[in-house]
């Protein structure tokens, strides 16, 4: 059985993508713009905004049944915070929910982030299309 939305969007289920920031970072311009662009690409964005705690973000991913978690960073503390989030997700049994990063991510850190299990890294120069395509690919098949 199909709902109206399925018919509108050609049969696919909207991907549920959590977007938010950790720490004291206030540079939310990018994440706010990408939230709107993802909406326009048919994604359901659960927008958490700035200043989330690691614990709060992990539990939101669970409660919201997110298909993936997107983090934006303009602060250089991203490696530490991402590691904390990965560990917290593991602790609550949500390690299978993929994580993607955006913002200012230095190429020297890519390997370490991938090793932690970060699935998508969209630093400077990433296009909207690349991000949308990645988010879509994270939707679970039913």
């Amino acid at each position: 059985m199909q709902t109206e939305t399925e018919i509108q969007s050609g049969g696919g289920q909207p991907v549920r993508c959590l977007l938010g920031m950790l720490g004291t970072d206030v540079h939310s311009k990018g994440i706010r713009t990408i939230a709107q662009l993802l909406r326009d690409a048919g994604i359901e964005v659960i927008y958490l905004g700035e200043h989330n705690s690691v614990k709060g973000m992990a539990s939101a991913a669970v409660d919201e049944d997110a298909d993936l978690v997107g983090l934006s960073f303009s602060s250089a503390a991203y490696v530490t915070y991402t590691r904390q989030l990965v560990e917290e997700m593991k602790r609550i049994g949500a390690q299978d929910i993929p994580i993607m990063l955006g913002g200012i991510i230095h190429p020297d850190d890519h390997a370490e982030l991938r090793e932690m299990g970060v699935r998508g890294i969209f630093g400077a120069g990433s296009t909207t299309e690349e991000i949308v395509e990645f988010v879509r690919s994270m939707g679970r098949s039913q």
Binding site: G23, T24, S53, S75, A76, A77, T80, Y81
Partner: peptide, 10 residues
């Protein structure tokens, strides 16, 4: 307690 990694960072 939440923001140790950011002290003096930027």
């Amino acid at each position: 307690p939440s923001f140790g990694p950011e002290v003096g960072l930027e």
